[in-house]
């Protein structure tokens, strides 16, 4: 059981809120302070993005944050250095999220080891193929106590969702629509049918909805169908403001109550 499993095991009826932000944005060393502030403000778990030069699944807001972070000098090596004191400051679950190429260059085994050393609980690498994880990397993830999180979209087949459920050991990341990040969630009948379809599958893993969750309304609608929801672009947008640190508590409060 890592922190992710414990969180979902003990949550009861609570709607879980996760926040995504890009490491090294807006400043190279802002990562840990933002994480700490988010926990105090009431976020339930965190996804820290490590930047990549070619983020094809991301919309303009997260693309921009990645560009700035890279210009600031953020690398995986730096991020792990910054997170070396993570568990002195932050107790909620933390996941790292990013693209596969920086992980391959860092070395998958070394990456998992570094995650474990600093107290990271899970990893989301959307362009790591499922069969490569299964064939090559699963043991090293498991040895290091890491949850590998898979994405599911409205187009993902039922058989594949079952397979993902079998391979997952943290939660399943349900995309509200097939889209790049930063689009607004509009819950149409079709989206509701899709959410309900997933709900009815009674997956063994908790389900967390992401993409398009930007305010209280979309957070509530998503968590009517899932254990939790993730806010990304809307929060990264806030980090672009000069007084972002003072505004984080209010941002979380208006989402949660």
């Amino acid at each position: 059981m890592n922190r992710i499993n414990e969180l979902f095991a003990s949550n009861g009826d609570r709607r879980i809120l996760s926040i995504y932000f890009t490491a090294g944005y807006p400043a190279l060393d802002s990562t840990l302070a933002i994480a700490e502030t988010l926990e105090k403000a009431g976020a339930d778990f965190l996804e820290i993005g490590f930047p990549y030069s070619d983020p094809v699944a991301d919309g303009p807001v997260i693309q921009h944050s990645s560009e700035v972070a890279l210009r600031n000098g953020m690398t995986l090596q730096r991020l792990f250095e910054q997170l070396s004191n993570l568990r002195k400051h932050v107790s909620i679950p933390v996941l790292l999220m990013g693209y596969v190429n920086p992980v391959l260059q860092y070395g998958v085994e070394r990456f998992c080891q570094s995650c474990s050393d600093v107290g990271v609980d899970g990893v989301i690498v959307p362009d790591l193929p499922m069969y490569e994880y299964e064939e090559l990397y699963r043991p090293v993830f498991e040895t290091n106590g890491l949850s590998n999180i898979f994405l599911v979209t409205p187009q993902t087949s039922e058989a594949r969702i079952r397979k993902i459920d079998e391979l997952s050991n943290g939660f399943i990341y349900l995309l509200s629509s097939s889209a790049t990040t930063g689009k607004n969630l509009s819950v149409s009948e079709r989206t509701e049918a899709y959410f309900s379809r997933i709900q009815a599958m009674q997956l063994k893993n908790p389900v967390v909805i992401g993409f398009g969750i930007s305010d209280r309304g979309t957070f509530l609608r998503a968590t009517d169908y899932a254990d939790g929801a993730i806010v990304g672009s809307a929060f990264v947008k806030l980090l672009g403001e000069a007084d972002y640190m003072e505004r984080i508590p209010e941002f979380i409060r208006q989402l949660k109550d």
Binding site: A57, L128, P129, F150, L151, V152, T153, R160, L175, S178
Partner: peptide, 11 residues
């Protein structure tokens, strides 16, 4: 080679 694509492109 291979197909290193996010789930959104998988189908």
């Amino acid at each position: 080679g291979g197909a290193y694509v996010p789930e959104m492109l998988y189908p």
